[in-house]
Computed example of a mutant assay.
Amino acid sequence: MSSVTVTTWSLEQNSPADLLPAAAPEGDVLIVRAEVPSPEFSRFLYASVGGDIRWTDRLGWTYARWQEYLGRPGVETWVAYDRGTPAGYIELEAHDEGVVEIAYFGLIPAFRGRRIGGHLLSHGTARAWDLAERWPGRAPTKRVWVHTCSKDGEFAMDNYQRRGFRLFDTKVELEPEAATPGPWPGA
């Protein structure tokens, strides 16, 4: 099996003032929190957004594993809709001591390049900063972080930096090369 070199960049914000919001895109784009944990919907978003950029780590998750993860306090899924159609999502995962990770973020391929991504990232990052307001007992957010890699979309890193995220770590690793899993094959 052949290998591919993958560079992973970790970025962070340490204050809500670090967020540099993008302008809202033209058209009828709405961002809504998926408040009811739904393994079916979350797997659809994961496979549809990540299929062409080789997201594979969750493809083997069982229904029960999805349900357990999505039901954890401080895990939130925010979905962008373009005229009623899911266009992409951002998934937030609260950790201890006021840290919130942007666990997943991206757009379904047909919606890329339409300025929805910057708007969704801005909205989702703002929701990471005020996450404790929706989860009584959670510490206020002190840090929001994300990682992106060389397999992600060509504009991912630029979008994070334009939103005010700063690089704090870079890793280069060899990974087994995987076939593109979808979104159609096995999606």
Rank of each mutant, 00 (worst) to 15 (best):
A80W: 09
V29R: 05
E93S: 09
Y46Q: 01
Y63V: 10
A23M: 10
Y89I: 00
S15R: 09
D57E: 14
A23Q: 10
S10K: 10
Q13S: 00
P16W: 03
V146C: 04
G84V: 06
F168N: 02
R72V: 09
K171H: 11
A94Y: 04
D96Q: 08
V32C: 09
A17C: 02
I31M: 07
G117H: 02
G186C: 11
T125I: 02
Y69A: 09
R72P: 05
E35H: 05
S15V: 03
D130G: 09
F165A: 00
Y46F: 15
A103H: 10
A187R: 15
A126I: 04
Y69P: 06
D18Q: 03
Q13D: 06
V75N: 03
V75E: 01
G153V: 14
L167D: 06
A110C: 09
A87R: 05
A22N: 04
S3V: 13
A17K: 11
S122Q: 06
T85Y: 08
F105H: 00
D52C: 07
P86W: 00
T170L: 11
L11R: 04
M1N: 10
R112E: 14
A179N: 06
L121R: 02
G182R: 03
R72T: 14
A187V: 03
Y160D: 08
K171Q: 15
R54I: 10
I102D: 03
L11Y: 12
R33V: 00
V144A: 11
C149T: 11
R166T: 13
A24W: 06
T8E: 11
A103Y: 05
W184I: 10
W78K: 01
S48F: 01
E26R: 13
E26I: 05
S38H: 07
L107D: 09
G153D: 15
S3Y: 12
L30W: 06
F41E: 06
G27R: 07
A132Y: 13
V99A: 09
L121F: 12
E91L: 12
G88Y: 01
R138T: 05
E154V: 11
W184L: 13
V36N: 11
E101T: 02
L19P: 04
E154N: 06
E40H: 07
R33E: 12
H123M: 08
G98T: 06
G84M: 05
M1R: 09
W9L: 14
R58P: 05
Y46P: 03
F168S: 07
S15E: 04
V32E: 13
W9T: 08
T180D: 15
G153L: 09
G118M: 02
D57P: 00
A22H: 13
R65T: 14
Q67P: 00
P25I: 01
W135K: 09
D82C: 08
G88I: 01
A178C: 07
G71C: 07
W61V: 10
R162W: 03
L59P: 07
R134A: 14
P136F: 06
Y46L: 02
A24S: 12
F44N: 00
R138Y: 04
D18G: 00
Y69N: 09
E175S: 08
T125H: 01
